[in-house]
């Protein structure tokens, strides 16, 4: 048993972190919030780093790594608030071998047929839509899916479209693996969102002065931030364990690990996003401070691959 990162894993994470810090600056995020069309050049740059091909066999140009590496990478993507249908494109490459997904040539989004209302992310930018039913998966050319773009999406970096009817499409696989791996990767994004929100809030609390002192020296503020830290650390351990269980299902209880990871990561991100807004005070309610982007992304991701209540019922059924 070893839950510490190897040197290679640390290098993978640190390399991506440095790249994203330069590529997705605060100014870049602000610009994207006002003009949210997906930047295909940025998408290709991610693919060139190997982000979508992490679990693709080396013979197909991938890195042949596992879910453990994937959650390290997705945490960094969440932390940097990178926009786009990251999880769907990743799964299309890793599980379905969809052409062009790993190389960044094809942008893949997805729709959940079991949801009562169909709202699809990044539909206008996508080349392909994977529709997931109770058991099966179907691939549809994005052009065949008629959607009405929402005038004002909740997350300014994630355009969404309302879809009334999903056409049939070609069967391409089973939904179970898609949903499990998708929940863990989404949870990894959430851990990153929570960490990013905490970093921003801690920085502000260390700079902003009131009553002649930085506000981060007040226990009332410290405790809010410490509570965020606790939620992130707990969620990160759960997500890592879920990923290791995906890589080696006999080493644990996969259904339990997946559900716990999504529940705890959603909690870390949504509560952490709120904390970030709150610590910024009035500025946290403005568009120019990035705090709202973390919370809105957290709210968005919370709805994907099973909201926490659904996962909680699954855990209860197993007791």
């Amino acid at each position: 048993m070893d839950l510490t990162l190897s040197t290679d894993q640390r290098d993978l994470r640190d390399g991506l972190r440095a790249f994203l810090r330069d590529a997705w600056t605060a100014d870049r995020l602000r610009a994207a919030a006002d003009s949210p069309d997906l930047d295909r050049g940025a998408w290709r740059a991610l693919a060139d780093l190997g982000v979508f091909g992490l679990e693709v066999p080396e013979s197909d140009g991938g890195m042949e790594l596992g879910a453990a590496e994937a959650v390290l990478v997705f945490e960094e993507l969440g932390r940097a608030l990178v926009p786009g249908p990251l999880v769907a494109t990743y799964l299309a490459a890793a599980l379905l071998g969809r052409p062009g997904a790993a190389t960044g040539a094809t942008v893949v989004t997805w729709a959940d047929r079991t949801a009562p209302v169909q709202v699809v992310e990044h539909l206008a930018a996508a080349d392909e839509v994977i529709a997931a039913g109770e058991d099966g998966l179907w691939a549809l050319p994005a052009g065949k899916v008629a959607g009405t773009p929402a005038g004002i999406p909740l997350d300014p970096l994630t355009p969404v479209s309302h879809v009334v009817e999903l056409p049939a499409g070609d069967p391409v696989g089973r939904a179970a693996a898609w949903r499990d791996r998708g929940a863990v990767l989404t949870a990894a994004l959430q851990v990153g969102v929570a960490q990013g929100a905490l970093d921003l809030a801690v920085r502000y609390a260390g700079e902003r002065e009131q009553f002649g002192r930085v506000i981060g020296s007040f226990q009332a503020v410290k405790h809010l931030l410490a509570e965020s830290l606790v939620r992130v650390d707990l969620a990160r351990a759960a997500v890592l364990t879920a990923a290791l269980t995906l890589d080696d299902p006999a080493a644990g209880d996969l259904a339990e690990a997946v559900a716990a990871a999504k529940i705890l990561a959603d909690d870390a991100a949504t509560a952490g996003g709120r904390c970030c807004v709150q610590v910024h005070g009035g500025m946290g309610f403005t568009w120019e401070v990035l705090a709202h982007l973390y919370l809105k992304r957290a709210w968005l991701l919370e709805t994907g691959f099973g909201e926490p209540g659904v996962h909680a019922e699954r855990l209860a059924d197993r007791m």
Partner: peptide, 26 residues
């Protein structure tokens, strides 16, 4: 049931964290 499930997630997460802490101590 959902409250039971959420607390089950807590316990699962705490066990994961304990194992992570032990790995780090090792």
């Amino acid at each position: 049931r959902r409250e039971v499930g959420r607390l089950a997630a807590e316990v699962t997460g705490l066990w994961a964290l304990a194992r992570k802490n032990v790995s780090e101590a090792a």
